[in-house]
Design a protein around this nucleic acid. Structure first.
Lengths: 161, 161
DNA sequence: CTGAGAGCTATACAATCTGTCCAGCCAGAT
DNA sequence: ATCTGGCTGGACAGATTGTATAGCTCTCAG
């Protein structure tokens, strides 16, 4: 079975692009727009989901629309062995949207949001007021010239066959 | 109209949580699970989308499943006035998933992916080989203990009424 | 050259869901 | 007391989804 390929073809890419831009259209309409049989689109989607390329179709929620218009990135340095507790502490903060452990001078990189610059102070305080965090540095995101996207990557995958 | 509120109530939060966890269920099934009339759920969704809280229902694509298992964050320093060109250059790189302009020592923070650590070198080369980028520093993400999430934030919004 | 396997087309059917209306009811605001 | 907005429960037609089946074509291996 050649399906173990880790890549996607042009039809997959077009399908994903279509669904990303107009999620409401559904499988049937997508098949019409792509000019292929519905069964084909359905089979493609099933395969993409089975392979994990498509995780799901959850609602995309905009924190800014909820009043959290300020985004910032915090780099944390953690005391030896304190990782697990810190991780738990961070996970409990709703304003922390994601956290990665990283190489380099810091140990963790967090993406956080706040209602305002003043509110950001509160969030950062909540973030760092925990034993085990030895040092932090925060940068505030001003603009977002390239919003999160994956389509160019899927296109590149498809292009290289 | 009280609808200008920038927040959401408990029902909204429960609805969003439900749809996030099981996107395929649809409006009707969601109304059954939440114990409210279908019209109510439909009206809530319409309002959430109208307010921009819910941007859409696009497919969530996992770069890792496409073979891009390495994530990194690159901080760039840009020469005075070179911002626009650099922005364009970056936008053309498919492995660049998002880019923010930031305060602090750097000027831009980029999230990039690559197929491997070796491939990361290629991506970074592509990223920085451009006049106007004066300095860069990259950290590689090792693990992702807190994957991107918004639900806790919506819950917090709903909780504070 | 030939058979096997995989993927796409085309079509069909039943079961569901979606988009819309509508009338009634309730609670908070005026 | 009156009004507006939101929720309920019900109803309908139209469209979509899940599932199957059969025929074709292309590619790969024997």
């Amino acid at each position: 079975m050649t399906a173990s390929e880790t890549s996607i073809d042009a039809l997959d890419a077009r399908l994903l692009a279509l669904l990303t831009e107009e999620p409401r259209i559904g499988i049937l309409e997508a098949s019409r727009r792509l000019g292929v049989a519905r069964g084909t689109v359905q089979a493609r989607m099933d395969r993409l989901q089975a392979r994990g390329v498509v995780r799901g179709f959850g609602p995309e929620i905009d924190p800014a629309a909820l009043g959290y218009g300020v985004t910032a990135f915090a780099t944390l340095e953690i005391a030896q062995g304190r990782g697990p507790e810190v991780r738990e502490h961070l996970a409990a903060i709703p304003e922390l949207l994601e956290m990665h452990t990283i190489t380099g001078v810091g140990d963790m990189l967090c993406r956080i949001v706040a209602r305002s610059n003043a509110d950001l102070q509160r969030v950062i305080d909540a973030l760092v007021s925990f034993q085990g965090i030895t040092r932090t540095s925060t940068v505030v995101a001003m603009a977002n010239p390239v919003p999160y996207r994956v389509l160019p990557l899927t296109a590149a995958c498809a292009a290289e066959r």
